[in-house]
Amino acid sequence: MNAVTTQPRRPPRRYRVANAWWTVPAVLYLVLFFVTPMLTNAWRSTGSPAAAGARGIWENYAVLVTDPFYFGVLRETILVAVIVTLVCILLGYPLAYFMVRKAGRWKGLILFCLIAPLLTSVVMRAFGWRVLFANRGLMNSVLIDWGLLERPVNLVNHPVSVYVALIQILLPFMVLSISSVLQAIPRNLEEAARMLGASKLRAFFHVTLPLSVEGIITGAILVFVLCNGNFVAALLLGGNSVKTLPLLIYQQFNLTQDTSFAGAMGNVLLVIALLGLWAQSKFARKQGG
C-alpha cells in the first residue's frame, strides 16, 4: 500500500505572534528587582564587610544551627509546616473528592466557601480565631453554658490556636489543588475497575488515588511553603508559645534591627522553600516522562 504522501506537511517554522524579545522587559525587571535583592541579601547575611573580621562569613549560619535556641526554632518551623501539611491532606482530600464527584449543583457553593476566605485579610482570620478562643470568647461561653466547662480555658497564646488557624488559612489551597487534578481523571476508569470486580474501596485506592497523587503533591508543596512564610498566626495567636523563623525575622526586624542575622534566617527559610520546589520539579519530571 502506498503511504499517504499527499498529506500536507506542516511549515518548518510555525507562525508565532510573539517573539523572544517580548520576554526581555519581564526578565530584566525580575533580574533587577528579584534576583539582585536576593543575592545582595545573601551577601549581607554573611556579615557586613566591616565586621567581617569579628564575625566569620558563616558565623550567622553557625549560630542558627548550633545554638540550641535557634536550632529549636528551626526544628519547630519545619515541624509546624509538616504537621499542618499532613492535616490539610487528610482533611482536604475527602472534601475535594466530594466536591468533584458528588456535589452536583452544590459545587458552586462549595467553591465559593473555599475561595471567600482567601479574600479576607489574614489579620481578619487571626482576629476571628481570637474572638472564638479568647477567655470571654464564643467557645468558652458556649461550653460553660452547656455545663461542659467550669472555668474558661484560654486557648489564645496556646499552640493549639496557631495550628487551628494555620490549617483554616491553608486548607482551601490544598482542596483546590487536589480538586483540579481529580476533575481531570475520567470517571469511567473507576467504573471500569468496578465492573472488573474491584470493590469500591479497592477501585478508589488502586485507581483514583494514585492518579490524583499529583494534586496532593502540588497542594502539599503550596501549603508547606505558605506555612513557612506565615508569621501572623504565630504573632497574633501564639503569644511566643510557637516560635517559628518568620516570626523571629519579624521580631528581629522590629526590635533588634540585626539585619545580617535576620538576613541569614531569611536565607534558611528560602532554602527550605527551594527544597520544596526542587521536590516538585523532580516529581513533575517523573510524571511527564
Binding site: F33, N41, L269
Partner: peptide, 27 residues
C-alpha cells in the same frame, strides 16, 4: 527555564523577599 523563572517569585516566602527588597531599594 525562563517560564519557570517568571513564576519563581511566588515560591519565595514573601517575608524573605520583602526584607531583601527593602535594603536593596533603600541602597
Amino acid at each position: 527555564t525562563l517560564a519557570a523563572f517568571l513564576v519563581a517569585p511566588i515560591s519565595i516566602p514573601a517575608i524573605v523577599l520583602g526584607f531583601a527588597l527593602l535594603y536593596y531599594l533603600s541602597a
